[in-house]
């Protein structure tokens, strides 16, 4: 599977007997999953058209290309759906997709490697980059602010950080 694909949802099972599926969307706006077509499965199957038909408990209902019976839908239960990163809209300056930030190398202003971005979390204040360093068990949460992260270079795969004192134990 190409590396530029990101998980956007999964099929939770059949809905009714006319080939509709229950979709679990992982998107920030659940209904946006239909905008990221074509959707792909891990084994390469693609669904060029996804038509949302309603909302059900814990998810959405939809018609997907090639799924016409309840049996078809049941056979795909638990299948993860991927979208190509290219179909996602461009973002304004200083806004980044979590997927673009995950995996970037973090360097301090002196050029020392501080680790790699493991994930991005938001607990209500600022976004936080969870940075993991090779050989260390604990992760460090780095505030994603202009002061703490002056440079984000996605093309080069690196972030330059100026972390507050005491954030990185031996930085």
């Amino acid at each position: 599977m190409p590396e530029d694909r990101v998980v956007v949802g999964s099929i939770a099972g059949a809905f009714g007997v006319r080939g509709e599926v229950r979709l679990k969307s992982y998107c920030s706006d659940p209904e946006a999953i239909a905008d990221y077509t074509p959707l792909y499965t891990k084994d390469g199957r693609s669904f060029p058209v996804v038509v949302l038909t309603g909302i059900t408990n814990n998810g959405l209902t939809a018609h997907m290309d090639g799924i016409v019976t309840k049996e078809d839908a049941d056979a795909l239960k638990g299948t993860e759906l991927f979208a190509s990163r290219d179909v996602m809209p461009d973002l304004p300056d200083d806004e980044y997709y979590y997927n673009d930030l995950i995996g970037l190398s973090v360097f301090d202003t002196g050029g020392n490697n501080l680790g790699t971005v493991k994930t991005v979390v938001n607990h209500g204040a600022t976004d936080l980059l969870e940075v993991t360093k090779m050989g260390y068990r604990d992760t460090v949460l780095l505030p994603f602010t202009k002061a703490a992260v002056p440079t984000v270079d996605i093309a080069a795969g690196r972030i330059v950080a100026d972390p507050p004192e005491g954030l990185f134990p031996d930085a």
């Binding site: 990101v6 998980v7 956007v8 949802g9 969307s25 992982y26 998107c27 920030s28 946006a32 990221y36 996602m88 973002l91 200083d94 806004e95 980044y96 997709y97 979590y98 997927n99 930030l101 995950i102 994930t119 991005v120 979390v121 938001n122 607990h123 209500g124 204040a125 600022t126 976004d127 994603f144 602010t145 202009k146 992260v149 984000v152």
Partner: peptide, 21 residues
């Protein structure tokens, strides 16, 4: 305490966005 949860759920990144403030 409201900004420092004691339990963390990561979920999927999907199309989530981070804004640098």
């Amino acid at each position: 305490g409201e900004y420092s949860p004691t339990r963390t759920y990561y979920g999927h990144a999907a199309d989530k966005k981070a804004k640098r403030k």
